[in-house]
Simulated scan of single mutants.
Amino acid sequence: MQAVVASDHALTFAGRSFRAAVGRGGRRSDKREGDGATPLGPLALREVLYRPDRLAAPAAAAPVRALSPDDGWCDDPAHPDYNRMVRLPIAASHEALWRADHVYDVIGVLGWNDAPIRPGLGSAIFLHVARPDYAPTEGCVALSLADLLTILAGGLTGIMVLG
Rank of each mutant, 00 (worst) to 15 (best):
A78C: 03
L148M: 09
D101R: 07
D70F: 09
G41P: 05
L143T: 14
L162E: 15
I107G: 02
E95T: 11
Y134F: 15
D101G: 06
R99C: 04
L121N: 10
L11P: 14
I90K: 06
S123E: 06
A61R: 10
L55I: 11
V86P: 12
L67T: 11
L152T: 15
G34S: 07
M85K: 15
H102G: 13
R51H: 14
L127Y: 04
K31M: 02
P136Q: 00
E138K: 09
R65N: 02
L11K: 15
A56L: 05
I151A: 08
H9S: 05
D35H: 08
R27N: 04
A66Y: 15
V106G: 04
R118I: 11
R84Y: 11
L43E: 10
A60F: 07
D147V: 11
R19T: 14
Y104C: 08
G41F: 00
L97D: 03
V48S: 03
F126Y: 06
L127E: 06
H128L: 00
A3L: 07
M160L: 13
D81S: 14
V129A: 01
D8V: 14
A92R: 03
Q2H: 14
C74A: 01
I125S: 01
A115L: 01
I159R: 13
N113M: 02
A142S: 12
L55S: 01
A115F: 03
I125L: 04
P77V: 02
L45M: 02
P136M: 01
A61E: 06
G155Q: 12
D8L: 12
G163F: 09
I159D: 04
H102D: 06
P42V: 13
D75F: 01
G139T: 08
T38N: 09
A130D: 00
I117Y: 02
I125P: 05
H9A: 04
E95W: 15
L121V: 07
P119M: 00
G120M: 00
I125G: 02
P80A: 06
A59W: 12
